[in-house]
Design a protein around this nucleic acid. Structure first.
Lengths: 140, 140
DNA sequence: CAGAATCCACCAGGATACTG
DNA sequence: CAGTATCCTGGTGGATTCTG
């Protein structure tokens, strides 16, 4: 256990939300699970560029924060399924909004972001799935 | 300049949005500016726990990403004002949503988050201002 | 297939002090 | 008041390897 030098501020809703979504893949994970991509190997396939370890870590945090539930099937080969909790689901509209905002402004964002050259590559899979499933959910 | 080991994926709207909001204070900064807290010293007062340096860095990124504009008044003492661009404004609904989600689930979140003991302290200022102004903006 | 244990590079971001 | 220059630390998350 450790202690932060500067304690986080938790009284602002913004910071609470930030804390939950803090982590490179958290939002993507919630998104994936909401799209019924719920098994670790599927998620892994959906998010190339993420390690199994990282996903495990972040999924565990999401679980500890009560956003997802993990169901372990005691069988061989092992099987695990994640699902969103009620409060986890309540985050989905926000994630959808972020997704849509990013898509809507893709043209512009890719330009300005690519200028500071941290960004390079691509992976459309998650989004394609998102759109399809979002339609199923009557969101789009 | 450096190069990331694993290039970020930019094709998913989620990741684009994440990139823009990536930084401990980005959302809070946009929020503050949208609330007409637009001068560096005001912002600094609003976000205790953030250094001037860090705010400058993140504001600069927001500026480079086209979310805010910086107006410098060439006078003494110097005066600077930030404002949201059009695309910056379009992010505000999402930030509001995050804020509201965090507030709505405060009870629960504070519990689960405080358990892994990274969090300690408080600062309600930003939120109080938020609510008041949000009413002005007819959002709440 | 799922996961845990190590190891470690690398920045984000905090502290401090100085300039205009 | 605003901005910048340095310095430094700790945590994130990537790579790798090993179990059941």
């Amino acid at each position: 256990m450790y202690e932060r030098k500067t304690p986080l501020t938790i009284d602002c809703g913004l910071h609470l939300t930030r804390e939950v979504l803090n982590g490179k893949w958290k939002a993507a994970l919630l998104n994936a699970i909401s799209m019924d991509v719920k098994r670790p190997s599927e998620i892994l396939r959906l998010l190339p560029g993420a390690t199994r370890r990282v996903l495990n870590v972040q999924l565990k945090e999401l679980e500890e924060h009560g956003m997802v539930e993990k169901k372990i099937y005691p069988q061989l080969p092992p099987k695990v399924e994640y699902s969103l909790t009620e409060i986890g689901w309540s985050l989905i509209p926000i994630i959808d909004a972020m997704n849509q905002w990013g898509d809507a402004n893709r043209q512009f964002l890719e330009t300005v972001i690519t200028q500071d050259p941290k960004i390079t590559q691509t992976s459309k899979s998650a989004c394609q799935i998102h759109r399809r499933m979002a339609i199923d959910r009557k969101i789009v």
